[in-house]
């Protein structure tokens, strides 16, 4: 097993996911089987292969520094679970 249950708990915490004990077991197992599947790549010698920064053979895609219209405050807040005075309203942070 490459991934421990503690690691799953840690990542769940970082992602703000609440998992049941059963889910933790399931995900630990599933994540491990995914890693095992990908482990076939370990057989390749990548010593002289630079790390991939991007899968597409493209670089330098830029835009000019020209202002475009923004959306309205109403549109910006349209999907907000909660709002007040034009602000997104969020629950207690710490």
């Amino acid at each position: 097993m490459k991934i421990s249950k503690e690691q799953v708990e840690h990542v769940a915490m970082l992602a703000r996911l609440e998992l049941t004990e059963a889910e933790k077991e399931t995900y630990t197992e599933q994540l491990n089987s995914i890693l095992e599947y990908a482990a076939v790549l370990d057989k390749l010698d990548t010593k002289d292969v630079p790390p991939t920064a991007h899968p597409l053979p493209l670089h330098n895609v830029f835009r000019d520094d020209v202002v475009k219209p923004s959306i309205s405050q109403e549109e910006a807040l349209a999907n907000a679970p909660d709002q007040e005075d034009g602000f997104f309203k969020v629950p207690k942070i710490v």
Binding site: D65, V67, K68, I71, Q73
Partner: peptide
Amino acid sequence: ATKTKIFCGCTTEFGGEQNTHVCPVCL
């Protein structure tokens, strides 16, 4: 000191009413 944000065309102007210098990219 650019005129627009790093990844979209929203203005970088300071101030402005809250949530009016935004677009789907920066949101």
